[in-house]
Nucleic acid binder design. Structure first.
Lengths: 109, 109
DNA sequence: GCGACATCTCATCGTTGCATGAGATGTTCC
DNA sequence: GGAACATCTCATGCAACGATGAGATGTCGC
């Protein structure tokens, strides 16, 4: 039922490129199995570095590097345990995580 | 329980690492702005390579490389235009895209 | 068939990202 | 205070990634 004024297919060369910078940045954070594992573990509650390093099978200074990236992106934050300050417990920043999820959903929608 | 009357926090060193391989793989595909832009454009319908290259501001052979990765992952598929076979039109494979989205949601949930 | 066009593949190169090791900071316990 | 522990930061080497150019394949119009 399409009116056929033109039979030739006409690629549109004037389309606007979508803004996917936020989604790509969020995906880059999730693209590493260690960082994805961190975020998945923190979805169930707070954990200290040594717990996550053991569960994920990586060294602690390696994990700390990945945590620094997530921290700089505002996705997680750390606080020392009240009873034993040796342990740094990380938790997710749900607002930032939700924003990342929304940006990704906008692309995969 | 492990300790006696101890109030010391006891990090659990026996936690199982979550399986985030699928999510990380999906995120790696979305982590490049060109590939994210492709998927976002294809969410609105099929497009040929030259259209997407123009909209995203990249050269066609560059875009073709990114399309090859999405194709290998099964996320998109290509077919020539019926009326003018010069143009390859790409469309999303919604089942694979939905699986990627589910894997990412499992991490960000 | 030939020339123009659309797209792909491959090799290369510069850049980025990750794991590692060493050293620094902060915390607890004695 | 000092030892042991938990974590961070920084510099380095290596592997993966992305952009580019050249050449190959396939399609169209003449």
């Amino acid at each position: 039922m399409t009116g056929k004024l033109s039979v030739l297919p006409t690629p549109r060369m004037d389309l606007a490129g979508p803004d996917v910078a936020d989604a790509a940045a969020a995906a880059a954070l999730l693209a590493d199995p260690v960082r994805a594992g961190i975020l998945r573990m923190l979805a169930d509650g707070r954990h200290c570095v040594c717990e996550m390093a053991a569960a994920l099978g990586v060294r602690e200074n390696n994990l700390s590097n990945h945590l620094a990236r997530l921290r700089n992106a505002g996705m997680v934050s750390a606080s020392r345990h009240e009873a034993n300050g040796r342990f740094l417990y990380y938790e997710r920043n749900d607002a930032v995580v939700a924003a990342a999820r929304a940006a990704l959903d906008e692309v995969l929608r």
